[in-house]
Structure formats: C-alpha cells, structure tokens
C-alpha cells in the first residue's frame, strides 16, 4: 500500500503552500484521482485520516474528485486559514 507515502508527499506540498500564504491551518483539501493513477481513493482517504491527526489539516475534510484524465493524481485546491 503506497497511499500512505503519497499522503506524506501531499503533506509536503501542503506545508509549502501554507508557508507561501503564512497560513495557520487548512480548512479543506481537494485532490483529483484518475482511474488509472494506481491509487485507491478509499485507501487514500484512510491514509489521510491517519496522517492528519495533530497537524494543520486536523479539521480539514478531504474531497476526492474523479479526474477525467485517467493518469491524473494531483493536489488540486486548498482552503487555507490565514491570520
């Protein structure tokens, strides 16, 4: 199961985005997953739920969108809480 390492990579991206915007928390996370991306959405969600505990994403729901591009696996949009 590689979903955990993908979530880890996504948290690195989220950290970069938070620093760019001086954000203090994340309110929502949206990812796009294609049918052939090699990622099981339910497992990705489970890994996210494990990983986000005690992080800036603790209260941020994860929205998973079916991507029309089958190979797509992207961090699409964040809603960031700023001071």
């Amino acid at each position: 199961m590689h979903e955990f390492s993908l979530v880890q990579a996504m948290f690195d991206q989220i950290g970069t985005a938070m620093r760019t915007h001086d954000a203090i928390a994340v309110r929502r996370v949206r990812v796009r997953i294609g049918a052939r991306a090699g990622v099981e959405p339910a497992l990705f969600r489970t890994a996210y739920d494990v990983y986000r505990v005690g992080t800036a994403c603790a209260a941020a729901p994860l929205e998973i969108v079916d991507a029309s591009d089958a190979d797509e696996l992207t961090l699409d949009q964040l809603e960031l809480e700023v001071p």
Binding site: L6, A9, M10, Q13, A17, T20, H21, A23, R27, V31, E72, L73, T74, L75, D76, Q77, L78, E79, L80, E81, V82, P83
Partner: peptide, 11 residues
C-alpha cells in the same frame, strides 16, 4: 480568514 489556493500540482 479563509483563502482558496489552487495548487494544481501532481502529488
């Protein structure tokens, strides 16, 4: 206090 940020980057 909430701003949307389009990342659009491969994970």
């Amino acid at each position: 206090k909430v701003v949307p940020f389009d990342v659009h980057e491969r994970i």
